[in-house]
Design a protein around this nucleic acid. Structure first.
Lengths: 204, 204
DNA sequence: GACAAAACAGGTCAATTGTCCTGTGATAAA
DNA sequence: TTTATCACAGGACAATTGACCTGTTTTGTC
């Protein structure tokens, strides 16, 4: 009588591993997370882990490509597409994050920020990947500002430059919020960015 | 004949260790740096290391208290005191960093940022220390903006809020610069911040 | 059904981690 | 000079790290 029912489910196992890794890497850090801990979190054996991800590095690359990039797409790029103009989207995104973090007991920061900071110090390929995600983010935001100008909603702005400022302010505020474990910095930056953008936008 | 000349120099040894640790923590990361590597960098034995810093954590705390705080004081708080107004100081600081990083082959980022991001995830005391450094930074910048208002150089600004934005923009730009290994983000933020501040300042 | 490849189990491995130990030379107070 | 404390040398220590190995089962193909 065989007790151990074993079900082959490559996609499922792989997804479980990446989910666990994404969560752990973002909240604890890449280096602070061990492969054994991930195996326990994802309920997979050493053999299964080695089969899907021969080295920890492969797992890190997959997490950035699949999960981190998706997180930025979901929280920033999609809302930008849905909203009428850039300032509305930015304010909405800030508001959503502030509300979400307020009722959470811990501020773990921006996924992309966390990964980029730690990883870009020792792995060129991971650094290039996170840089590309930043690039997509900047491109989407920049394009939205440019569209606002073409449609005469905004005047006298430099789309690329102001997009950089918004991303930097958001990332920096996230770092400060994570360090102080308080959403105050996000509130401040939200208000300042709103005021700054309002000065260059014609409101109906 | 005794070859091994041994000189007791507590302050010197301690300083060598902290110097090596600060450099390594900032460029490679806290977790990515081993105690053995630090001993080799600082040319100290295991006994000396254990005597001055029984645990790695103690070394981390000392680095934040002594070096990271000093770096922020030197690059931000001091220039703020020397310059006539906040915008001048901010522009000067950005310019200095851009120039410095341009001729350097590698962008290692903001020391405070690097330490805060990594360390605040697993150590409450280190997190509190880095948070305090952010606090000093914010207080100094905030006070300068307030002084500019009192002296009628600026009107209609919220000192505390705009100080947060400046710090966040700087930190975020540093993160982006480190990730992309390019000073572009710093240039963008410098220009945008200068324009933003100019709008609220009366120029002679 | 035969067979090759993929999917997975469970354990081993050397290397490295941070910490701590014993012993000894230096220093200063008594 | 005695004595206690500090400063340091050199090595040992268990624990953990990421990687990998040999088997076994499942799956797909002919």
């Amino acid at each position: 009588m065989i007790e151990n029912k074993r079900t082959n489910d490559p996609e499922g196992v792989r997804r479980r591993i990446i989910d666990a890794a994404y969560d752990a890497f973002v909240t604890q850090g890449y280096l602070a997370t061990g492969m054994l801990e991930l195996r326990e979190r994802a309920f997979v054996s050493g053999g299964a882990m080695a089969h899907h991800f021969p080295a920890k590095r492969d797992l890190g690359l997959a997490v950035i490509r699949d999960r981190v990039a998706a997180a930025v797409r979901q929280t920033w790029i999609e809302p930008l597409r849905r909203c009428a103009d850039a300032p509305t989207a930015i304010d909405l995104i800030f508001e959503a994050f502030i509300g979400e973090l307020t009722q959470k007991d811990r501020v773990s920061g921006c996924p992309l920020n966390n990964m980029a900071m730690e990883v870009s110090q020792f792995d060129a390929e991971m650094r290039a990947l996170t840089s590309a995600v930043f690039g997509d983010w900047h491109e989407a935001l920049s394009a939205k500002f440019a569209a606002d100008m073409e449609e005469k909603r905004a005047v006298g702005i430099n789309p690329g430059r102001i997009a950089t400022l918004v991303i930097a302010a958001y990332s920096g505020a996230m770092t400060m919020a994570k360090t102080s474990q308080d959403v105050g910095p996000l509130r401040d930056c939200r208000a300042e960015l709103a005021a700054l953008l309002a000065a260059n936008y014609s409101r109906p």
